[in-house]
Write a protein that binds this DNA or RNA. Structure first.
Length: 867
DNA sequence: CTGCACACTTAGTATCAGCAGA
DNA sequence: TCTGCTGATACTAAGTGTGCAG
């Protein structure tokens, strides 16, 4: 079946020669060759989602031919010789398997209904071009820098051999610097902790737990680990004490009158089944899930199972009712209950809310912190994930399945040997208690949907996380020294005869230029998303002369849609990699996987993997943009510029967010507001005219013309809206006043009062009517003069400018998420340097948690640190 | 190799909390 | 003074990459 076919095609030899190509072209005929035209050549079906499957043939290769060959397509590439001929002469090529594609996991796909629309609207991407150009420049700088560093580096190391070490080695690779440092600091204490302050502990007790975390709060130590990094990686801790995990609360059954309705009849379920019904019922407002067919199907099959396992539902007479069809279930009663609960919670007076919170905090207190090598550290996610419905993203085949409650018996505890093991709840025991000092997790369990491991680890501000963050960025900085060499190599390899190497070079090119992810193979029980190595035929289309159009779903089923002009050789290569008999569903890089790619990358630099390129390119781009900034401007301008740079990086990494449902309305509201302001501007001018009719001559009639887009129809609408708004306001004020009077025991105001007040609105309407008729506007304000009106006009102008800027920003930002790149990709030290250089409070860029997470960066660099 | 188990980072979104503006 | 919005945080899914057994 699919498997063998796939193999056959994959192992097709590369017999690429131009003459043959011709041959194939005419004789083949089974698969249409790729013809190059102006325009998408092999575009995904009718603009449908590229990941959409219409025939369930995802992985199965065509059985049409066993002998199809890759071949050069066009006659344009003079420099491209037939691959097979040259290959013989290739040096030390493992010729036996060079051309045999890596066997990849056979994935048989269930036939799926054609993909649901992923993004109808083809968001055009104007920023892209700018970005590419910008990137080209940034790359050039990178090359220069790399060379410079290498030169300096060798000089420096030489010097260092003679002298015994200077401390300013920020620019050297982690491994090296750590080593040299060791010799320098060898005599100093290995763990440098500086006692900083005694902090009064406001927190009180979790009744005598194993880890008396709060007792130590009064003696806070600052762990300045970054001043003494050792890069021994395998052992993560010497001692580890913690209180385990906080299990999910027990299920609280619904009140007796809240029931599932089945076939118009309220039915009673066993608590277990009821809980599952509740998962769904509580979710009815989440249309993303509830209107997803897979979600419903999966939920219902699980629900049915548990219902029949627990003795089915019972109607009011106690008769058994079998739950058989999803469409007969009505969860609205349950939804209403949970919704009301939510409302109720919101309405609790704030004093009570505080009390509830305090209670919760007290329960959580013992779990919040642990002791890692004797130092108090915050635990990240000590709460075991509660049961619910699995919300897999995109077209996840398992979305909607019931995620079951995690029992202590499934949880493994990892803790120091001597430490007191947190007691499992009475009558239970842990699955296992380990003492693995090479792992950083405190507790672990396996989730029932995909069998994934879930870990309880330390918070982002902990030393262990900080260290690995630091190492990550140091690694990226090290890449800076090799990047020119790597780029030169892959550019050269784009033309190499070995198809595997050529694919690898092309892939690295894409990873470097487009910040693609590596793209591991995925199983067939996951959403069909791809990265670089797993790109499929239909994800890239070619457009002459050298544009590649990418359209695929990446991590989290986020769409990557870009048109990119690439190196002509890359274009040519993609053409080859997509050549018949490859077709929809086939891998573009069929001789490449992430392991091979990373193995190759590691030859340039220890620890270099595809992922490092994303970090490197993000941070390097940010560094370059920040460096270019002029040292002028106010703080808000600075912030804006920083955010713009941040946005560039986010766009590079394709970090997106869904535009909120409210966005459109908000946007039109903003634009409408701007229009309204402009209308006021015009009215102001008309008032001037009213004051001094002569102005018409001196300033010209044009000066007093109403802007074209503010046509009569719009004006009428606008005026009506203004009047209505005024009316509403008066009404509301009236009601509020009455409420107050009532509270004070006074009589409510008479209706007559309201009527009187509403006359203001009528007045306004009248004024507008008069204006429309007379084409004149009465001057407003006290003692109006032309000068005053001019000032008003200017003020309006300013407000318009501001509003426009805001609107633009909002629109531009609507689907870009800045957070992810800030948290994970941009070296925080860049921000710290920026802040110091330009004197902007760091709070403008890093929230409290982020400042804690990046404490190491904030405290370790000065103004002239460079990425 | 290759496939899987495992560990850890990266990612978007739901929800919370605080604050500006009506 | 309340409300609606926004930014911060919590949550957990979905990646990457390593190492080991077969």
């Amino acid at each position: 079946m699919a498997n063998s076919n796939k193999h056959a095609v994959k192992s097709a030899a590369i017999v690429s020669s131009r003459d043959k190509a011709m041959d194939e072209h005419t004789s083949g005929g089974l698969q249409p060759g790729i013809s190059i035209q102006n325009g998408p050549v092999d575009s995904p079906q009718n603009g449908r989602s590229t990941n959409g499957e219409s025939n369930g043939r995802r992985k199965s290769r065509t059985s049409l031919t066993q002998k199809k060959t890759y071949k050069e397509m066009t006659s344009s590439d003079e420099d491209d010789e037939p691959l097979s001929k040259r290959r013989k002469t290739a040096v030390e090529e493992d010729s036996s398997d060079d051309d045999v594609p890596l066997a990849k996991k056979a994935l048989k796909k269930l036939p799926k209904p054609s993909a649901s629309q992923i993004g109808e609207k083809d968001t055009k991407v104007p920023i892209k071009k700018r970005l590419i150009e910008q990137k080209a420049q940034i790359e050039k700088k990178a090359e220069v820098t790399a060379k410079k560093i290498r030169a300096e580096d060798s000089k420096a190391t030489k010097k260092r051999k003679v002298k015994d070490e200077s401390d300013s080695d920020d620019d050297r690779p982690l491994a090296k610097s750590a080593k040299t440092k060791k010799t320098a600091n060898g005599t100093k204490s290995t763990v440098s902790k500086t006692k900083v302050k005694a902090e009064a502990s406001p927190v009180k007790k979790g009744k005598g737990k194993a880890v008396s975390t709060d007792d130590d709060a009064d003696e806070e130590e600052e762990n300045r680990w970054w001043e003494n990094m050792n890069n021994d990686t395998s052992v993560k801790w010497k001692t580890l004490e913690h209180n385990g995990v906080l299990l999910a609360p027990e299920y609280v059954p619904l009140p007796r009158d809240v029931k599932l309705i089945y076939k118009e009849e309220p039915v009673t379920l066993d608590v277990q089944a009821e809980e599952v019904a509740g998962f769904y019922g509580a979710m009815l407002n989440s249309t993303v899930n509830v209107s997803n067919a897979t979600f419903n199907k999966n939920f219902f099959s699980d629900f049915k199972k548990i219902v029949s396992k627990t003795g089915h539902a019972k109607n009011s007479k106690g008769e058994v009712v079998k739950i058989e069809h999803f469409k007969d279930c009505d969860f609205t009663k349950i939804f209403e209950y949970y919704d009301a609960e939510r409302e109720r919670k919101k309405a609790i007076p704030s004093a009570d809310k505080k009390a509830i919170k305090a209670k919760k905090d007290e329960i959580e207190q013992p779990y919040m912190f642990c002791k890692w090598n004797g130092i108090k550290e915050k635990v990240g996610n000590f709460r075991v994930e509660p049961p619910g419905l699995f919300r897999g993203r995109g077209e996840h085949p398992k979305t909607g399945h019931v995620k079951t409650r995690v029992k202590p018996e499934q949880i493994t505890i990892n803790i120091g040997k001597g430490a007191k093991v947190p007691p499992p709840p009475p009558g239970h025991k842990w699955k296992e208690v380990k003492h693995d000092d090479t792992a950083t997790w405190l507790a672990m369990w396996q989730e029932n949907i995909n069998g994934n491991h879930k870990y309880v680890m330390l918070a982002a501000n902990s030393a262990i996380k900080g260290q690995s963050d630091y190492k990550k960025f140091e690694k990226a900085r090290e890449l800076k020294k090799h990047i020119d060499r790597i780029r030169k190599d892959y550019t050269k390899d784009l033309k190499v005869e070995s198809m595997a190497d050529r694919q690898r070079a092309t892939a690295i090119y894409l990873i470097d230029k487009l910040a693609l992810r590596a793209g591991n193979e995925k199983g067939d029980d996951e959403a069909e998303t791809v990265g670089c190595c797993s790109l499929k035929f239909e994800h890239v289309t070619l457009r002459l002369p050298k544009t590649l159009v990418f359209d695929f779903l990446g991590k989290d089923s986020i769409r990557f849609h870009q048109e990119v002009e690439v190196d002509p050789q890359v274009f040519k290569n993609m053409k080859i990699f997509k050549k018949a008999p490859k077709t929809k569903g086939d891998d573009i890089f069929d001789r490449l996987n992430t392991a091979g790619l990373n193995k190759h990358l590691a030859t340039y630099m220890t620890g270099l993997t595809a992922k490092v390129f994303r970090t490197y390119n993000a941070s390097w781009t940010m560094a370059t943009l920040l460096k270019e900034m002029k040292p002028t401007g106010t703080v808000p301008e600075r912030v804006k510029e920083y955010n713009d740079a941040n946005r560039t990086v986010a766009i590079l990494c394709n970090h997106k967010r869904t535009v909120g449902a409210a966005h459109d309305t908000q946007m039109t509201k903003m634009l409408e507001k701007i229009k309204g302001l402009r209308y006021e501007q015009w009215r102001t001018r008309m008032m001037m005219l009213n004051l001094e009719p002569k102005l018409k001559k001196s300033r010209g009639a044009e000066y007093f013309e109403r802007p074209e887009d503010l046509d009569d129809e719009w004006v009428e609408q606008h005026q009506a809206a203004e009047v209505e708004e005024k009316r509403q306001k008066i009404q509301k004020k009236f009601e509020n006043d009455n409420k107050k009077r009532e509270e004070n025991g006074e009589k409510p105001l008479p209706e007559k009062e309201l009527k009187e007040r509403l006359e203001d609105a009528d007045e306004l309407a009248k004024k507008y009517r008069k204006e429309n008729k007379s084409k004149k506007v009465e001057p407003e304000g006290k003692g109006p003069t032309v000068e005053k009106l001019e000032a008003t006009y200017d003020k309006l102008e300013q407000r318009i400018e501001n509003a426009k800027l805001q609107a633009d920003d909002k629109e531009e930002n609507k689907e870009v998420a800045l957070g992810t790149s800030k948290i994970n990709y941009i070296d925080p030290r860049l921000t710290v340097v920026f802040v110091k250089k330009f004197n902007v409070p760091i709070e403008r860029f890093f929230s409290k948690t982020l400042r804690e997470k990046f404490d190491w960066a904030i405290k370790s660099v000065d103004e002239d640190w460079e990425f």
